[in-house]
């Protein structure tokens, strides 16, 4: 079985982002970029399924500019077999358009399972996996903390409010990852070198016949109203008094 893993290039999770003063967005110039952390978990899960003999090939896909090829190389260095870049010059592509592009890629690739991160840590949409499932008419299991892949179905344990639940999905199916699913591996230097020789194909929204134009208009982006540092207190009793005063005890 082939597993497809879409990955997104995002601002590294350790970077403190800066909102542009003119309200036009977040400053991405000269900022460290990485693979979306939830997508790393998705790649890792696919690789583990392959290593367990339950999958035969892991294909990573990204939608973005030339630079998204770096993110795909990261996936290849982790152990994915090949990569597909859907190249676009758009500054950002909305989840609905991403889902349509992925649907078109899937029509060519015919994977048995697609594993995605539950959300990207830049736009925090948490939509793409569910939308892709809808467009394909496939079942979905979001926020996975355990994936047990069978021949014609997959059992997925999901992190839901208040605990866990397990669903059985008929294949082909969509799974999105939550934090507890696994600890992604680091790519070793030899594997990073090897990844440079693995196939990376390019296509485009035009070739795939998908209209990727946005539906939402971002009117402005601002910093949240900041918190100011409060007071440092001397004793526990002072703290208790302040908390009572604030009405939170």
């Amino acid at each position: 079985m082939k597993i497809l893993v879409p990955v997104k290039r995002v601002v590294d999770t350790n970077v403190k982002i800066r909102v542009k003063a003119d309200g036009t967005g977040v400053d991405l110039a000269n900022v460290k970029m990485s693979m979306n952390p939830f997508d790393e978990i998705a790649v890792e899960e696919a690789l583990r399924l392959k290593e367990a003999g339950k999958a035969t090939e892991v294909v990573v896909v990204s939608i973005g500019t030339d630079k998204s090829a770096e993110t795909l190389r990261t996936g290849l260095a982790m152990g994915a077999d090949r990569a597909i870049l859907v190249k676009t010059d758009a500054a950002s592509v909305e989840p609905l358009a991403v889902a349509k592009l992925l649907k078109a890629v899937i029509a060519n690739e015919a994977p048995g399972l697609v594993i995605l991160g539950k959300q990207a840590i830049d736009d925090d949409s948490n939509q793409t996996g569910q939308m892709l499932a809808a467009l394909l008419g496939w079942p979905q299991a979001t926020f996975a903390s355990k994936v047990a892949l069978g021949d014609s179905s997959v059992d997925v344990t999901r992190e839901v409010d208040g605990g866990l639940e397990t669903l059985r999905l008929k294949l082909p199916a969509i799974v999105t990852t939550d934090l507890r699913l696994n600890e992604p591996r680091y790519a070793s230097l030899p594997n990073i070198m090897k990844a440079k020789k693995k196939p990376l194909d390019e296509t485009s929204p035009e070739t795939l016949g998908v209209d990727a134009s946005p539906r939402l208009t971002v009117l402005k982006t601002v910093e949240p109203t900041g918190r100011t540092a409060g007071v440092k207190l001397g004793t526990v009793d002072e703290l208790v008094a302040k908390l009572k005063q604030a009405g939170v005890l």
Partner: peptide, 20 residues
């Protein structure tokens, strides 16, 4: 978790972009 799971599926079936 229920809402976040189902809403994008609804949005895609209606061909609209969800506001999360």
């Amino acid at each position: 978790s229920t809402g976040k799971n189902v809403a994008p599926r609804v949005a895609a079936l209606l061909d609209v972009m969800q506001i999360s």
